[in-house]
Nucleic acid binder design. Structure first.
Lengths: 191, 191, 191, 191
DNA sequence: TATGAATGAGATTTCATTCAT
DNA sequence: TATGAATGAAATCTCATTCAT
């Protein structure tokens, strides 16, 4: 017999898959339970409602993701190195956690205000970290003097390109990122 | 008495509002009809199904939006001017067409394959226009030599910042855009 | 412009076809009107309701059918000849008025009590005619002495065989009827 | 608490009654559920759709009926005895299973092609049994030499008389059957 | 008189949630 | 604790009928 924590985790993972594939409304507790290999009623022993389950899936997933991104930013190095590692980690997440991103993309409107606040808070954490790095870099004369918060937002927003960009023949995500980073650091204008 | 085209438009607008506020699944034909000031059955006189209505709302909205953005890119000017106008038009759309964006954000998963293809096509049009502008600018030695498609994707992706950025005290979207454009053209690195 | 009676007839015929193909519930006034080449509202100028239209279609059709069958019974001849003509006329009706029979088969339950009474009355007329013929034949010692009403019911019931019998290779309805008549007159027992 | 099989049976019986009284289209799952003493959703736990429920009701009922009729034909005896028992069993069914017949009469058009094939197959079984009996009887010189299949169809068709015949004062179904059988065996002609 | 746009009652079906076992 | 049978609210869609033109 599995212990409680393991079964809880099983349900969370099954929910992640189902919400990703079907979206919040179309995913059913029935299927989530079946995916998890438990009875329908059992899910309600661990989570009080479908919405609560959804929230936990999302909060946990996003938190992990943000934590991973934050971690690479906090490793020592230049701004260049940090941003580059950020994009590489982002690619890794894109490749390994498609479920989470699918949920994010399709269910933003289903997120209760309460959870939304928590999620924004998490995101702001990452933005804050990025901003701090830029502030220091500006002070250290390591980069151009732009409002660091806007720069941080711009770079973080750039992480999304990978989710919409259609690879051309011969391109790899790695090569795209390489060019993308060049743009971020050099800009469009010639020097 | 309104004529048929006007009533159709009325329903489309009511649907836009409802889909934006509730998402596809939660929005009900009942409410859309009430919003439009018509009976439930009447909506079915104009649109064969909820999905068909949804598709038309989306296709029409996105098409208009892309057309507007494309239009400003095609007015004469330097790359600088074009990209700047693009961001300003984007801000204008953001301020006037929040409903459409809300639908886009929350219902990607509900978009039928058929419509999805049409939408991607529209989006590719815009990307293509941007890419062509960059290609010419590179040939004219007006901008740095990066793969123009990637640059185009980067700039277009940048349009989304406005939808997530949280204004600080004293900031306006106009000032944010100003800094943002500076980043796009100059990059983070000092010269 | 057609006159009123012609348009009425047009609607009745369209209704006959539609009720036959779809059954009472599935047939729609919309389609009936379209089949008749008139507007939806127009049908209501001629018939107060869907049910009323259905009743008139049925009553008219059955009345015609019974009248045709009655007519052949009233032509002079022996019992043999009359019953034989009855079956032949029945075959003719089967071949030319499949719509009416389709309605009869599938919509008995939809027939309002009021119409049902009228229909039974019509049927009883035919039964009565047949019964009278048998009564006379018995008195004339032309046929065996059985309760003429039961004999009449048996023969009339026999008319239905044609609607369920599946022809074998080489058989024709004509040949089936020939054997069938032999049975009616001679019975199963050897003599 | 009833077990699953019993509840299933309860719903089937409620459906039988409702389909008989209202016809397929007018009968509602709501009412069927109420008749069965269960909730609306419960019916869908046992039958995937209204149509599936209808099919099962019909197939089960007809199968039972045909099996009962077949059984009496297979008991030993002369052709006379067999046909007589057939009519008596038919009367018994008529008296005890009016619901089923009502459905048959009023909903032929609602029967899905798939079920229709199964039903015809069942009916053909009975026709085949009857035909075989007649074939043997003819070979044994026990009855007149008519195509046995036609004779079988005629006799089986005769079973329906009971569903349309209106009893006169002083008549009973038993007496009607008695005369009817006489007709089948002796025919109308005098000897 | 002829029309068809407008309507809303009503049907089937889904599924989150409860609760007896 | 774990289960799944039972439930009914709610959503989409159909169509007879009305009525303004």
């Amino acid at each position: 017999m599995k212990n409680k924590e393991e079964k809880r985790e099983l349900i969370l993972q099954a929910a992640l898959r189902n919400f990703a594939e079907e979206g919040f409304d179309r995913a059913t507790m029935q299927n989530i339970a079946k995916s998890a290999g438990v009875g329908k009623g059992t899910t309600y022993e661990y989570f009080p409602s479908k919405e609560a389950l959804f929230c936990e899936v999302l909060l946990k997933g996003i938190s992990n993701m943000v934590d991973e991104l934050t971690a690479v930013l906090q490793q020592p190095g230049t701004v260049h190195e940090k941003v580059e590692r950020l994009f590489q980690k982002n690619l890794e997440i894109f490749r390994t956690k498609s479920d989470l991103r699918a949920i994010m993309l399709n269910n933003i409107g289903k997120i209760p205000a309460d959870l939304h606040r928590q999620l924004m808070e998490k995101q702001r954490e990452l933005l804050g970290t990025m901003e701090r790095i830029f502030t220091e870099a500006i002070q250290a004369d390591e980069m151009v003097d732009v409002p660091p918060r806007i720069a941080a937002a711009a770079v973080l927003n750039g992480l999304q390109v990978i989710y919409t960009y259609q690879l051309e023949k011969g391109e790899t995500y790695e090569s795209v990122i390489e060019h993308y980073l060049k743009l971020i650091f050099h800009g469009l204008d010639k020097r």
